[in-house]
Design a binder for these strands. Structure first.
Lengths: 165, 165
DNA sequence: CCTACCGATCGGTAGG
DNA sequence: CCTACCGATCGGTAGG
């Protein structure tokens, strides 16, 4: 997406964008940081309603997919363009992502301690979960009719319980 | 990656590329179809050595990660640029991907019938598996020291057995 | 396989 | 917020 296309979507000419943003970098950073905040906010909103790690993790998974589906265009930028954020903003962004991931891993650690979860490598487990969840945006794009909440539920089940009988 | 950068990597000038390829599209298509063939070949090489669906699926997962790690640069193009293949090649490429996915789903169907696997939505389960496996290229890029076979094994365990105790 | 060059498009600026 | 325009870079061609 070029500056001219962005301008067309808001109904102005490309140079006029520079009255609102310093440049393309700033637009990119704004989208990425706003989306990151959404993920955090939505996580906080659901996770403390549950006390058991299993239910917390499931709620966090469903909330995460919810943010993606309610901010599809921003989420695409967040996933595919974040690496073009200029330093030092990029480092700050990566830290936010890391902190968010750690919130998931804390739930897993608690679950492992309680004996609710297997003794998995939580970093790798987190990686598997986010890879699958973040890829759902491609499903949503190619098939807008799917029931996204149902899909998030079923996906949480596969990730938590596996496919082995 | 532009034509000038491609040329520099093989030690010629950009216009000389056109003595070997019609254009950038043809280079992209060649990389994507060659990589697709690699995935198929590696799948066939391991899957018939096992008879039980669980072991077959695990072997297929490990083989898939193996292809990624042995063709990292090509795999990146395969995953991130395939959508820019020109029609009708693009349709043929998508069919190959679909056929490859179906090979995994056939194993799952067999496993479900035998009672080795849960009655999961095999399409969604496949999506979860490929999302996680294909994202490992980012892990490999950012940390070349990791033991990739060990990682593939642990990941197959998480995907098959889940994280719930 | 090269040099020289093309039209198109990019992010961005000058000036109003 | 606009018109007019900039240098850089893109994929690709002409001609040898």
């Amino acid at each position: 997406m070029g500056m001219r296309e962005i301008a067309r979507e808001v109904g102005i000419e490309a140079p006029s964008i520079y009255n609102h943003y310093k440049g393309k970098d700033e637009i990119l950073a704004e989208i990425c940081f706003d989306t990151a905040s959404q993920f955090f906010k939505s996580f906080e909103a659901v996770v403390d309603k549950e006390d058991k790690p299993l239910k917390q993790l499931k709620a966090a998974v469903v909330a995460h997919v919810g943010v993606i589906n309610e901010n599809m265009e921003a989420a695409e930028v967040f996933f595919n363009e974040w690496m073009f954020i200029e330093e030092p903003e990029k480092a700050r962004f990566k830290k936010m992502r890391y902190d968010y991931e750690m919130r998931f891993r804390e739930i897993m650690d608690k679950g492992i301690k309680r004996g609710d979860f297997k003794k998995v490598d939580t970093k790798l487990a987190c990686f598997v979960i986010f890879s699958a969840l973040n890829a759902t945006i491609e499903l949503s794009k190619s098939n807008s009719r799917i029931n996204k909440e149902e899909m998030a539920e079923e996906m949480a089940n596969i990730l938590l319980k596996g496919i082995k009988a």
